[in-house]
């Protein structure tokens, strides 16, 4: 088999920069080369490596839905060398992107079921892809519920889309902020995500739970889902280990014998339980 140098990125133009929250931005990216765009496709749950030439690569999910063609979006927090360089980019600049990598959420197998998304902070972007995908295939699913929390009202990402989901009748959004994170006009809940889940218990009957958030949120959310009767096979999450290659070679993302970049990042909870706690 003729091998290909997988490290050569696609060149992408930043079409739009959206300020989401302190130090968090969303880029809308378009392929510069139309041939690249023509052969590119992805599914909900996959990720890519975004790069600034001269600074390096960084891994994030594709935050837009595969149902929205012609562009991809990524949302990132400015924390290190690459993400700072990305944050300094402007509309019209060129960045690198390679992907898509990893497995996908098995959305087709969820047809006819209720979906509940439970997420916190900067972990909404990987689920936003799935949520919009589900909304674009709305008649395939029953109830769609989103429980989303952040430290403060300001830290919530996609505020404009949260407002849209609030106003739609075909999706239930419960927003919450940590105690003390509310503003005077805050209308959502106040409390940590697991507590808010307990306060608004969904039926586990015919329901898929998709959980993504900081380790502590996941750790406290899972027992509540268990108590509500969710079987392990109905709970999904996506891992975000450090990654450098995306193709199962560099070793950074390994959890046991799994390469999160190719065997994940999407895991069903019963599969996750087989791995050592190294994520």
């Amino acid at each position: 088999m003729e091998a290909k140098n997988v490290y050569i990125p696609y060149q992408m133009k930043i079409e739009k920069v959206t300020y989401e929250a302190p130090q968090i931005k969303t880029f809308k990216l378009k392929f510069i080369n139309p041939e690249d765009e023509a052969k590119f496709s992805f599914k909900a749950g996959q990720f890519g490596l975004y790069s600034v030439f001269g600074e390096g690569e960084s891994t994030f999910c594709i935050a837009s839905s595969p149902t929205r063609k012609g562009y991809i979006e990524c949302t990132f927090r400015e924390v290190g060398r690459v993400t700072t360089a990305l944050a300094n980019c402007e509309e019209g600049d060129t960045i690198g992107f390679r992907g898509p990598y990893g497995n996908t959420f098995p959305m087709e197998s969820w047809f006819g079921k209720n979906l509940i998304f439970i997420t916190g902070g900067i972990a909404l972007p990987p689920l936003r892809c799935v949520i919009w995908n589900a909304l674009d295939w709305r008649d395939k699913f029953k109830d769609i519920i989103v429980i989303y929390g952040a430290r403060t009202a300001e830290d919530l990402v996609y505020k404009h889309e949260l407002a849209e989901w609030e106003s739609r009748s075909d999706i239930d959004l419960i927003q919450t902020v940590d105690p003390g994170g509310e503003t005077p006009d805050w209308k959502g809940e106040v409390g940590f995500v697991p507590a808010i889940l307990e306060k608004n218990p969904p039926s586990s009957e015919n329901t898929i739970a998709i959980v993504c958030g900081p380790p502590i949120m996941i750790k406290l959310t899972l027992p509540i889902l268990m108590k509500l009767g969710f079987p392990n096979e109905s709970i999904f999450t996506t891992l975000e280990n450090r990654m450098k290659c995306g193709v199962g070679k560099c070793g950074h993302c390994m959890v046991g014998n799994n390469y999160v970049c190719k065997d994940g990042p999407v895991y069903r909870y019963d599969e996750l339980l087989k791995l050592p706690l190294e994520y």
Partner: peptide, 23 residues
């Protein structure tokens, strides 16, 4: 076989390289 991927030089011209890394 583990490695890291890093960029060298500047936005105008440079090299993306990989180098050995260790768990």
């Amino acid at each position: 076989s583990c490695f890291d991927v890093q960029d060298e030089c500047n936005p105008k011209a440079g090299t993306r390289l990989r180098c050995w890394d260790s768990c």
